[in-house]
Design a protein around this nucleic acid. Structure first.
Lengths: 224, 224
DNA sequence: GCCTCTTTCTACCAGATGGTCAGGGGACTT
DNA sequence: AAGTCCCCTGACCATCTGGTAGAAAGAGGC
């Protein structure tokens, strides 16, 4: 867990930034960087971080492993970059709602719909979340760092709503985590369905969403 | 995915049985076998199959890797044995209820409580399920084989109930899979809670269970 | 004492993995 | 034409991986 090699690697990855030459993002290599990121997301999200080899990743892209290591300093650096981009995607989707004009319960509903939309459009992203939100995952702290501020913001908003009496008083963090794990669980569910030979339909997803909303309403609605 | 090496390994593991000398279970090595199984469950369920090295596993037990390979023919054989034991645990817990005297809705409730009890007593088991129920996992077919009969039995029972009008007519398999993924998702949730610095309490689990029961009632209750 | 079976160990191996180092080539500047 | 910067690669390496071969040690039957 904390053998010297891992520790050293962690320190290095933290000191230098993940991406070589962060700051400039244009240039010929930008496209390569994106392609690597896409492939890495797919691989990490399905066969997992440990199951992904840089050689396979590279040969799938028609490049050499060293090219990956050139753009992203190390394998963990690559994972970090993937997590960062996914967190950014989720952040923009959620911020769009948080800065929209919906209020009260409508806002909650909009948030849930927004997350489910992302989950449907980018199922790989959910797979990555599932992979990363595992104890001892190398990227768990990074995910926390990338999503934490938004979570805190959502929590603060909920607590303001509670203070104003527009939401029932409960543990905001607990509700958020429940909602989060429901969405990630949805990804698992879809995979199990596929393994059982059933192609998941819109109906299963809609049912899940309805259930989550019902749960949230039961937890948050002041009348009840 | 189906490279020759993997294929060969799969065939061998399937032909010989997983455990060397299955049939006799007594002897001096029985205790060692159990200890290996315990440690393997813990490791597979937390850091995952790929993340587990036989050397680490062995040194954690104060034995040599070759001892593990003596008792369980290969790493995949070990995974298979772990999955089998967990499936057996779940099976006995569920069979106890299925052969009990509870009927109708009470039986559904008893099943859910039974599964949650197992999940609480052996959280590692849920971690393993989560690890294994991933597309492309080497043990996915084995889990299916070990749990499949019970699932089919549950499904058949539900369909009989539907025919008799004691349950609302829906897709039994879909309901079962939803319930399954909720329980496995619970494991994720507990881990995320821990990562967020909150020790999961009985309350969070109870809430989840109540939610699942509500979902099942909504899906199955004939009045509504 | 001898034989057999079980269990565990030491020694070793081929392959894969993440990572380093030095260099080549293109584009753009001066 | 020379220098410089960015992008990419071939050759190489230390380490770790799951797995094999063979022997030592003990227990028990004859």
């Amino acid at each position: 867990m904390t053998d010297p090699a891992t520790l050293r690697e962690t320190v290095r990855d933290t000191v230098r930034d993940t991406v070589r030459g962060a700051g400039r993002s244009s240039g010929r290599g930008a496209e390569t960087r994106e392609r690597i990121l896409d492939a890495a997301l797919e691989s990490f999200g399905t066969i997992g971080y440990d199951g992904t080899s840089l050689d396979d990743l590279a040969s799938g892209l028609g490049i050499r492993k060293q090219t990956i290591l050139y753009h992203y300093v190390s394998k963990r650096g690559l994972l970090g970059a993937v997590v960062d981009r996914c967190a950014a995607d989720l952040n923009t989707a959620l911020l769009e709602v948080l800065e929209g004009e919906a209020t009260d319960w409508e806002r909650v509903e909009a948030l849930v719909r927004s997350v489910f939309r992302v989950a449907l459009e980018q199922p790989l992203l959910m797979g990555l979340l599932r992979e990363v939100s595992r104890p001892g995952s190398p990227a768990a702290p990074r995910l926390k760092g990338a999503m934490g501020p938004l979570m805190e913001r959502a929590q603060a908003w909920m607590e303001r709503e509670m203070d104003a009496g527009r939401m029932r008083r409960t543990d905001a963090q607990l509700v958020l985590i429940s909602a989060y794990s429901t969405v990630v669980g949805l990804a698992t569910e879809v995979e199990v369905l596929r393994a059982a030979g059933l192609e998941p339909t819109m109906r299963t997803v809609a049912t899940r969403r309805r259930e989550l909303l019902r749960f949230l309403r039961a937890s948050l609605d002041p009348q009840r």
